[in-house]
Write a protein that binds this DNA or RNA. Structure first.
Lengths: 238, 238
DNA sequence: TCCCCAATGTGTACAACGTATTCGCGAGAG
DNA sequence: CTCTCGCGAATACGTTGTACACATTGGGGA
């Protein structure tokens, strides 16, 4: 047993450290792991690689983290420190800045979109804090609990779905050292051209030829986001 | 070189098979892989396990699929055969049934939400066909190409973001042999209780105590979806 | 002051994974 | 009949997560 079983990661971390002389700490581990993931992608985050980066034996981190799942949760919580929401905004501005800043966070850390599902469900303290703050902004509007959560979750679902796609594209561009969307399309061209030559996708093809904002990812994100917010306002009578 | 390099998977598949006597085929491979993933989750889909299921040597599938990435794309295309859209619907009903049927598909195959990012970007024929059909329903409404794609992508992002979460929860419930959401909450209770006992999340806590539709996942999905559709209608003047 | 024990990092090891490579068979074309 | 080439078999290698036993070290009770 590497660590105390039956006790959550977060519970353990908030207990006082028994001995203050450790070279390794959850903080240092998280920082190093995030640095690797930011620089080389999530697949480069290996227990061995992490240990090497910390100048420590491969199994050393296991004293502070019960396994790779724990490590991923630690990384998530670590980067969510950068996501803060200002006070005093109306519900709409609040949800909107939540969305925009979450996008920023996921572009700064593209591996967030690639996490295995249990890490996405993880209830880390800082994620809880963000959710709490966003929910609080929906309080006092006369909505019942279900409607409040529905509004929050709808925005959240849109943001994550959107960023799943956008950060995958961005990652692909970065991996192949391409400079922009045009070069990406050139790389994917053989496959895409083959699809188009079948003549089965005329509408799609017309989009490819006539669209003007194919690469304006921020416009795409925000225009969809405003749709979602409009819909929430209309349906909840806000 | 397992297969012809520089030629896309789909291009290869639509060329006539050189010899019709093969015991292995992309069809059989896809069916077997999907069966494993449906029954035991994506992590059970191993090249060795797949080969065993087909009573074949571990390396045999590589003759038809250039690697695991190809296999995953094949699996995606295979299940998308079940997603059809009726003709003659208005734009809104069309996007709505697209969303609802995609949800159905992702609940029937929960591993769809866990695919690595490059498999999510994959342009498989059947996925292309679905997108084409959905886009076609937005044609002839006087929208420019960017607006059409924006509407489609907004719904798509919401659906995927929503299902990412829902299918992760469903998977968690299934993995632990729980019967419903209440039992799930009991399992997560120690962690959740600890978070709540900190008193840092009062709004969240009130939601947990007063919400009535916490487990009505279909209502949650569809109420958010209707928000999104309302928003699209309003913003695009439809 | 000394000693001992719990906490922490080290070293070795194993099973499982994806896949490169090399072989041998067996059927269709000439 | 033979040649050849498509397809599956066999073997093997490097990398991964992590179990387990050991060494070390520093602070509190004697």
């Amino acid at each position: 047993m590497a660590t105390d079983e039956n006790v959550s990661l977060w519970e353990r971390l908030e207990r006082p450290a028994p001995t203050p002389r450790q070279v390794l700490s959850p903080q240092r581990i998280a920082t190093a792991a995030v640095a690797i993931a930011d620089a080389e992608g999530l697949e480069a985050v290996t227990m061995r690689r992490l240990a090497a980066e910390l100048s420590v034996a491969p199994m050393a981190p296991y004293r502070h983290v019960s396994g790779k799942d724990d490590l991923l949760e630690l990384m998530v919580d670590h980067v969510y420190a950068d996501l803060s929401l200002p006070d005093g905004l109306g519900w709409r501005e609040n949800l909107r800045t939540l969305a925009v800043r979450t996008r920023r966070l996921m572009l700064d850390h593209r591996w967030l979109a690639q996490l295995p599902p249990q890490a996405k469900l993880s209830l880390t303290p800082r994620r809880m804090a963000v959710a709490e703050k966003a929910l609080a902004a929906l309080d006092d509007l006369g909505l019942d609990a279900d409607a409040m959560m529905s509004a929050f979750r709808t925005v959240d679902a849109y943001v994550h779905g959107s960023m799943n796609y956008e950060s995958a594209v961005t990652t692909l561009i970065a991996e192949q050292n391409l400079s922009d969307g045009d070069e990406l399309r050139d790389t994917l061209a053989p496959l895409m051209m083959w699809h188009m030559r079948t003549g089965r996708y005329p509408t799609f093809q017309r989009y490819l030829h006539t669209a003007a904002r194919k690469d304006d990812t921020q416009w795409q994100f925000e225009s969809g986001l405003d749709c979602v917010l409009d819909g929430i306002a209309a349906r909840l009578g806000l």
